[in-house]
């Protein structure tokens, strides 16, 4: 149940950009959405609302990084080669992947800018949310970059390809030696560092 809620949170963080861009495009400030809650701040500049929209997923991303400590642990320490006494790095290749999400994020921008009504937003966002949640692949969101995280595609010695989120700057596979990583899902791991 906990991991289910955690995945909902990650999905929301990863997809929230669509809603934010839409709200900004529609100039939908906070006091238009909640007129009764904040009558006295209606004179504030619109930018404050937009800032609040952006800061919310940033804080939630921070929360998700904090919560990841309760996830299942793994490690990428040198492994013993069977039948020998040699230990070799568990990683055979590492590829910097910070830019790989850009196309999908640009996609979010264009979709958000071309949505005309709230009804369309509900449906489009709903579909996007469900598919992101089910695919478990687009959990990575650019907000991690604000927390100094980097994205990598790594291949283990046995050939499985894993998406790693880490603060460290890895370049050479054999230098990747990680005491503890947390499993977001079977293909995505985060090193909290």
């Amino acid at each position: 149940m906990l991991s289910f809620l955690f995945r909902i949170l990650l999905t929301f963080n990863a997809t929230s950009l669509l809603v934010i861009i839409f709200l900004i495009k529609e100039e939908m400030v906070l006091w238009k959405i909640f007129p009764s809650l904040c009558p006295h701040i209606s004179s504030w500049p619109d930018e404050i609302s937009y800032f609040a929209y952006i800061i919310a997923p940033v804080l939630l991303t921070g929360l998700s990084i904090g919560l990841s400590r309760f996830l299942s642990e793994d490690d990428f320490k040198p492994v013993l080669i069977p039948g020998t006494e040699m230990k070799e790095s568990a990683i055979t290749s590492i590829e910097y992947a910070n830019n790989s999400f850009l196309p999908s994020y640009l996609g979010y921008f264009f979709v958000a800018l071309s949505i005309n009504s709230f009804d369309t937003l509900y449906f489009v966002y709903g579909i996007l949310f469900v598919f992101t949640f089910m695919s478990q692949a687009l959990y990575f969101n650019p907000l991690f970059l604000l927390y100094n995280f980097k994205f990598y595609n790594i291949t283990t010695k046995n050939g499985s390809v894993i998406f790693l989120i880490s603060r460290d700057c890895y370049k050479i596979p054999k230098n990747v030696e990680i005491e503890k990583v947390y499993r977001i899902n079977d293909f995505t791991y985060i090193e909290r560092g």
Partner: peptide
């Protein structure tokens, strides 16, 4: 027969 990597 193969190296053990838990993430696999």
């Amino acid at each position: 027969k193969e190296p053990f990597i838990s993430a696999d």
